[in-house]
């Protein structure tokens, strides 16, 4: 039983990472109706940039600011070059465009910073918490716990930002109806640039945390692929959904790997979330927290 909880907690904590990446997706989807496949590439780009600045000798806060500025530039450029020409196109076209964007960002990141894995040291130890180890005989890493706290704080900040600021209100208006928002004088393009920047910020946090655990490496881009099932579970428009979905995917894939994996030769982590999401789609297409959509004729 202890083993079960250990796997479960490990899964939940890695689910936090999925949640963070999925959060970036939700932000952009809410504001512009774009399913941003490039979110993973953005995480990779952010992590590499941060690590790159650190390797050049910058202190952590400076590197953080530097990487954030890069993400702002990237967000604004994306709005200019990708979103603006494609406004009013079908969602599926925008989706394919973000696949192109993902390739572009991956290529760019590797040209600027090189393709080799860079280590990120945030000064947080990755060791079991002694108290929990003694008391419950379970291995829970300090690092994972801190990561979870940071993710939680980020979600709280974003929720408050959406709910209580003027920009947040504008964002919600845009999410509801582009045209109506435009007609009452909300500058759509600014809003998009802002939201992509915020998504870039989320990507940076995710990249730093994930990179500190496993190094800033190309595999980060695959994390984004996991975010898709996360969103299907949680609903594409719900911040809370992204968090819960991430936790569910994170924990079930670890549990499945440990308990079902040995029966079929292992390695099922790769596809299990998709199959789970698929079954979920058949039962509840709008996700746990998504809005139900009625087709009108």
């Amino acid at each position: 039983m202890e083993f079960f909880f250990e796997v479960l907690i490990g899964g939940l904590l890695s689910g936090v990472m999925y949640s963070l990446v999925a959060l970036g997706f939700v932000l952009i989807y809410k504001a512009s109706g774009v399913f941003n496949f490039a979110q993973g590439a953005m995480v990779y780009f952010a992590a590499l940039t941060f690590a790159g600045f650190v390797d050049m000798g910058a202190p952590l806060p400076v590197a953080f600011v530097g990487a954030f500025v890069s993400m702002i530039v990237l967000g604004i450029l994306t709005e200019r070059v990708v979103l603006r020409p494609l406004v009013n196109q079908p969602q599926i076209t925008l989706f394919m465009a973000t696949i192109g964007l993902a390739f572009f960002i991956e290529g760019l990141a590797q040209i600027v910073w090189g393709a080799s894995t860079r280590r990120i040291d945030l000064g947080i130890t990755d060791e079991p918490i002694p108290y929990i180890l003694d008391r419950f005989n379970m291995v829970v890493s300090t690092f994972d716990l801190i990561a979870a706290v940071i993710a939680g704080a980020l979600v709280a900040v974003l929720a408050a930002f959406f709910q209580y600021t003027k920009i947040g209100r504008a964002l919600r208006a845009v999410a509801d109806d582009h045209q109506a928002a435009l007609s009452i004088g909300i500058p759509l393009q600014h809003i998009w640039a802002i939201i992509w920047t915020v998504a870039g910020f989320v990507a940076l946090v995710a990249g730093m945390l994930w990179g500190a655990r496993n190094g800033a490496q190309f595999a980060l881009t695959f994390v984004a692929l996991k975010a898709l099932p996360v969103l299907i579970l949680g609903g594409f428009t719900s911040i809370l959904g992204a968090i819960v979905g991430g936790l569910i995917i994170g924990s079930t894939e670890k549990l499945a790997e440990v308990y079902i994996g040995p029966m079929v030769g292992g390695g099922i982590e790769n596809w299990f979330p998709y199959v789970l999401a698929l079954f979920f789609l058949l039962v509840r297409p709008e996700g746990l927290f998504g809005e139900k959509h009625i087709d009108r004729v």
């Binding site: 465009a97 192109g100 964007l101 993902a102 390739f103 572009f104 991956e106 290529g107 590797q110 040209i111």
Partner: peptide
């Protein structure tokens, strides 16, 4: 890597 960027850009 430039190939990746050009592919992405072309799309």
């Amino acid at each position: 890597n430039m190939e990746l960027m050009i592919f992405g850009g072309l799309i």
